[in-house]
Computed example of a mutant assay.
Amino acid sequence: MSKPHLFQSRTHGDGEPTVSVLPAQVPEQEIDEGSEGPQILTEPRQATTRSKFDEGARGIKLAIRAESGFFAHAYRGLLIAICAVILGVSSTGWCFLIVSAALVLVAETFRCAIIATVDLIAEPGDPRARAAREIASGGLLFASITSGCLTVMVLSAKLSEMLGW
């Protein structure tokens, strides 16, 4: 399992760890460079729809770069889409396939975010951090199994229809 390299962890002069995000992710007016190091201000900001979409796009880009599982899921999704085109899956079947693929990608994104956060705030070897990582991976496994079952049901139903079973 690859460790995400999205964030930098720094320590104060007294050795206490502090969490920081990449500079491109937080506008300068939201960072307070006080005596305790960079801290993100908690004042609410007026985010525009455009800035929310930009933030989401940066998040997807970071998740894809940090986790190779996205490429494995994309490869499997491409193979499933090719099979669905060849078999001539109905529009309802396509809906199931698209929703199940999206479910897996959302679960992978949450898993990546949870692991990155846990890596920032937990000490190496912390059993609670390990439990959080395993729970996040369990959620992805559950989504993958559900997606696999839906895919098998849609493709096998169409294949059995074509073969006259």
Rank of each mutant, 00 (worst) to 15 (best):
S144M: 12
A66P: 02
H73C: 04
S100D: 11
R130P: 00
A131L: 13
V106H: 09
T117F: 12
R76A: 07
L62P: 01
G139I: 04
K158D: 06
V106I: 14
F71M: 10
S160G: 13
I60F: 03
I80H: 11
S35H: 04
L6Q: 12
E36P: 00
T48L: 00
Y75D: 11
G56I: 02
R10V: 12
Q46H: 05
I31F: 00
M153A: 15
E16L: 11
V152P: 01
Q29C: 02
R10W: 07
A129K: 07
Y75R: 14
G13M: 07
T109C: 05
A107W: 11
E134R: 15
R133F: 06
R50K: 10
A131P: 01
I86M: 13
A131C: 08
P38L: 03
W94S: 07
F53C: 00
E33L: 12
V85Y: 08
I82D: 10
D119V: 03
D126R: 08
W94V: 10
F96L: 10
D119A: 10
I115R: 10
E108P: 01
V118R: 12
Q8E: 13
D14V: 05
G88N: 08
L62A: 12
T146W: 15
G93A: 06
H73I: 04
I121V: 14
Y75K: 13
G56A: 14
G37P: 04
T92R: 08
C83R: 14
I82Q: 13
I82C: 03
L78T: 12
V152D: 04
L97T: 07
E43F: 02
C149T: 14
M153F: 15
V106S: 07
P23M: 00
A157Q: 11
L22V: 01
V104G: 05
F7A: 08
C83H: 08
P127D: 05
T151C: 12
S137V: 00
R128I: 04
G34H: 03
A66W: 02
P17E: 02
V106N: 07
A136K: 02
V118M: 09
T109F: 15
S100L: 03
S51Q: 13
I40G: 02
M153S: 13
A47H: 02
G34L: 03
C149P: 00
L150W: 10
I31H: 01
A47F: 02
P44S: 02
L140D: 06
I115V: 15
S20Y: 00
I82G: 04
P23F: 02
A47S: 04
I64L: 13
